[in-house]
Design a protein around this nucleic acid. Sequence first.
DNA 1: TTGACTTCGTTGCAGTTGCAACGATATTGG
DNA 2: CCAATATCGTTGCAACTGCAACGAAGTCAA
Lengths: 148, 148
Amino acid sequence: MTDFHLDDFMPYQLAVLSSQISREFAELYTDRFGLSVPEWRLVAHLSQTREPVSVREIFERVDMDKSKVSRAASRLEQRGYVIKSVNPSDRRLVELRLSENGRAMVEELAPLARRYDQRCLEALGEAEPAFREAVRLLLESRRASGDT
Amino acid sequence: MTDFHLDDFMPYQLAVLSSQISREFAELYTDRFGLSVPEWRLVAHLSQTREPVSVREIFERVDMDKSKVSRAASRLEQRGYVIKSVNPSDRRLVELRLSENGRAMVEELAPLARRYDQRCLEALGEAEPAFREAVRLLLESRRASGDT
DNA sequence: TTGACTTCGTTGCAGTTGCAACGATATTGG
DNA sequence: CCAATATCGTTGCAACTGCAACGAAGTCAA
């Protein structure tokens, strides 16, 4: 027995926590719209702007391999939630954006997401804002150093 | 554009954060010992006690499917890090525990893990203990309600 | 302009995953 | 004791994943 304590080891704790949460939340959008996790992530990301977004921009921010993004985008296009087009000024780039259907789906999902989010952190009580801030900080710090 | 803000949505933020961290940390043990992520998780769990642990106990706590645990255990047994045996008093149960080699591996990994853990939360400054506590709380709250 | 080099997204492939089904074992009720 | 039911871990399978290789498109320097 070393003095290594799993309960204090954040990479492990975070992995367990986030995969539990993610799977739990996933029920909401798989039941209703048949989205996979990567598909939901892509949609969620696209919902943040009306500007078209390239595959590259997404996998850089979202920690998905570019092939994952690419395949998610194709499936979503097939089902009519996403529109893919070629960027005219740089034809290597693919522009992704939500279709009307896609936006409607997000409209419907958004309140569920917000509610789940709240219920999820309920246990924290007044520590909740501090926790949110901490997560934000960690992500930011690792953007700064990480991808150089 | 709905008023859904991804930056405030914890399931998403946690997923990104934890997968980045997990992948980053994974380099340490894949480089040195050729462990996959589930294998490391199993080893880490087993390192917490000298008592043998059943497959069931592990996948309940660690958010891995039982087949994942089972396969990780087999590979680790082949490589001599884990010992599998049948529980004599209930022959359905498989007892898992670390071999000597397995313990030696953990001895070597533990300091790296601790150091990484620290460096990881460094950005939080004095907010770090509060963050750790919050994560602990969340996991606990969800054990209480979740698996009934 | 041309040729070397870079960047972008897709695809082939081998390995991994989750789920359901299974055999083996244990428990329960009559 | 036996039959019905439940639990445990493994395995088959189809889907998914990450990586590397690729073609297409752009950039840069000579």
